[in-house]
């Protein structure tokens, strides 16, 4: 590889045996050779970098089907999607009312519950179980876990508080819990991703 750079640099060098005549620096041939070598080196770098991107088998697992039937009102389940936890929660009517009663102008990341759910399926709140601060898994999806001051999720790493709609209400996290791309296949099952 050293020779590649040195040939392109050859244009400027005058070896002992070189006659002084001729301005080699601008010699088209050397420039063309050097340019070609540079293009070739760049073409080799692309696959060497791209190999670190997700492989075909990883990409093939990018979407999953989730059955919602086992989730009772007021409860949540944890599923796995792309190697990350998914929280799927069935809200009770009171919880929906609580969430809608919040004045969203006071929120750090203003969103209504309706914006975070699918039309006609407001009771199904599906979010990533990944704190938007530094990626820990918040508590609150399983029975008996600390759900924080706002009754939603509580991240034990740095104390972020999420409300029942998964919106950030306190602590260092900047954003609401992310809602993944999903679609209802039937009233009780969704395809995520």
């Amino acid at each position: 590889m050293a020779s590649e750079t040195s040939v392109s640099a050859a244009s400027g060098a005058h070896g002992d045996g070189l006659p002084p005549e001729g301005e080699r620096r601008r010699d088209f041939l050397y420039v063309a050779t050097g340019a070609f070598a540079a293009v070739g080196a760049a073409a080799v770098v692309v696959p060497l970098v791209n190999q670190m991107n997700p492989s075909a088998d990883v990409l093939a697992l990018a979407s999953i089907d989730l059955d919602l039937t086992p989730i009772q009102p007021g409860q949540a389940i944890v599923a796995s999607w792309r190697g990350k936890p998914i929280f799927a929660r069935q809200l009770t009517p009171q919880e929906i009312a609580t969430a809608n009663a919040v004045d969203i102008k006071t929120l750090r990341d203003p969103q209504t519950l309706a914006e975070r759910t699918k039309p006609g399926n407001e009771k199904w709140l599906i979010t990533l179980g990944v704190c938007t601060h530094l990626g820990c898994v918040p508590l609150g999806a399983r029975e008996g876990e600390n759900r924080g001051d706002y009754g939603g999720y509580y991240c034990p790493c740095h104390g972020s508080q999420y409300d029942i709609a998964g919106r950030i209400r306190g602590g260092p996290a900047p954003k609401n819990l992310e809602v993944p791309t999903y679609a209802f296949k039937s009233p009780t099952s969704v395809t995520i991703g």
Binding site: A2, S3, S6, A10, A13, G15, D16, G17
Partner: peptide, 20 residues
């Protein structure tokens, strides 16, 4: 003596580049 040699660069870098 010097009449027997050439500097490695650019003479042999160029030749090695071609060989490469």
């Amino acid at each position: 003596g010097p009449q027997d040699t050439v500097p490695f660069h650019p003479y042999y870098t160029a030749k090695d580049f071609f060989g490469l």
